[in-house]
Structure formats: structure tokens, C-alpha cells
């Protein structure tokens, strides 16, 4: 048990450090998409809902599975789609969409 915990703690701390490194000094126009993009990534909690489903065998378990699945699915599907919609505006080559870009990023 302690070995598992230590392994998980090591992963946790190293992932924290990677997270700090990977987002250093990004342009302020990308603040909103970055927030939205990382918001989509924590939708991975839907994997936790899957594991909950595989372990549940009581009515309380089924209800919690349903709640977790509903909330996590809204996070992960909505998160990626809305991030993609925001970023669509960034990839359009030289249109007069600069003002909308700045507006969405504020």
C-alpha cells in the first residue's frame, strides 16, 4: 500500500512540475483558450466515473455513477468543443477577425 502511495505521489509531484514548465509566459490573447483547454483536460475525471461504474453494486453507487458521469461528460465534451471553437478564430489566415479575437481573450 505504501509503495503504491509513494509511486502515485512521485507521479503527482513530477506532473505538477511539468505543468509549471509547460505554461510559462504565454501571450495574453491565449489566456482564455489556455484556460478552456486545461479545463477540458481535467474532464479526464470521466475515467473516474467509468471506474466508479465498474465498482458500484448499490443504489447509492448507481446514483453517484450517474451524477459523476453526467457532470464529467459535460466537462470533457463541452470543454474540447468550446476550446476548438475559440481556437478556430486564431487559425483563420489574416481576416479582419483580430478584434473579435482580442474580445474573446479578454
Amino acid at each position: 500500500m505504501m509503495q503504491t502511495l509513494f509511486g502515485n505521489l512521485a507521479i503527482f509531484v513530477l506532473a505538477l512540475l511539468v505543468g509549471v514548465e509547460v505554461i510559462s509566459k504565454i501571450p495574453s490573447t491565449l489566456h482564455t483558450p489556455m484556460m478552456s483547454g486545461s479545463n477540458a483536460i481535467h474532464g479526464v475525471v470521466i475515467a473516474g466515473a467509468v471506474i466508479t461504474a465498474s465498482l458500484a453494486s448499490t443504489p447509492a453507487g448507481y446514483i453517484l455513477t450517474f451524477i459523476a458521469a453526467t457532470l464529467a461528460a459535460a466537462n470533457v465534451f463541452g470543454g474540447y468543443v468550446v476550446t476548438d471553437r475559440i481556437l478556430k478564430m486564431f487559425t483563420k489566415p489574416k481576416q479582419s477577425s483580430m478584434s473579435t479575437t482580442a474580445g474573446a481573450a479578454s
Binding site: 507521479i11 505538477l16 505543468g19 479545463n39
Partner: peptide, 19 residues
Amino acid sequence: NNQALIIAGALVGAAGTIL
């Protein structure tokens, strides 16, 4: 005890703080 949640969660936790 799920590593995918730990890694992705920690990543967002740190990145979100810096952001």
C-alpha cells in the same frame, strides 16, 4: 488509484495556477 487522473489533474492544477 488511477494514474491518468493523477497526472492530468496535477498538470491542470499547476498550469492553472501559473495561468
